[in-house]
């Protein structure tokens, strides 16, 4: 699992961490059920505050990709579909980024997605 942090980027560091871990889950570098490095260790490696890493982990937990348990640390969801879900979330993020870059409003984008969902 490779995490690269660009301290000059406008993207929050926690989100950068979440994106890197999500990518690792998506390409099965980190397998379902596998334990992620401890937040403290990762923070020390990257030279950031432990809360920054925990923010990233928290985001992944909200996406249903990892489980955070007291004492056990962060573990990738044992669901074999986790890599697929990670890819899906990645795709949604790319979609949002594309829409923003094109100046498409959130409302329009949601309508586009609704249309796509209704199409099948």
């Amino acid at each position: 699992m490779l995490v690269r942090l660009d301290h000059g980027s406008p993207v929050p560091l926690g989100d950068q961490i979440a994106a890197a871990v999500r990518g690792a889950i998506a390409d099965a570098t980190v397998r379902p059920g596998e334990r992620l490095p401890a937040a403290r260790a990762l923070a020390d490696s990257l030279g950031v505050n432990v809360h920054t890493v925990l923010r990233g982990y928290q985001r992944l937990r909200e996406e249903g990709l990892i489980e955070l348990r007291r004492g056990r640390g962060a573990v990738v969801t044992a669901d074999p579909a986790a890599p697929g879900r990670a890819r899906l979330t990645d795709g949604v993020r790319a979609l949002v980024a594309d829409a923003r870059a094109l100046g498409v409003s959130d409302e329009e984008l949601v309508n586009l997605v609704r249309g796509g969902l209704a199409g099948r």
Binding site: V3, R4, H7, R35, V48
Partner: peptide, 12 residues
């Protein structure tokens, strides 16, 4: 490595 970039690679 870009300027001011920090990176970590870790694997079991």
């Amino acid at each position: 490595l870009r300027e001011g970039e920090s990176a970590v690679w870790t694997r079991g």
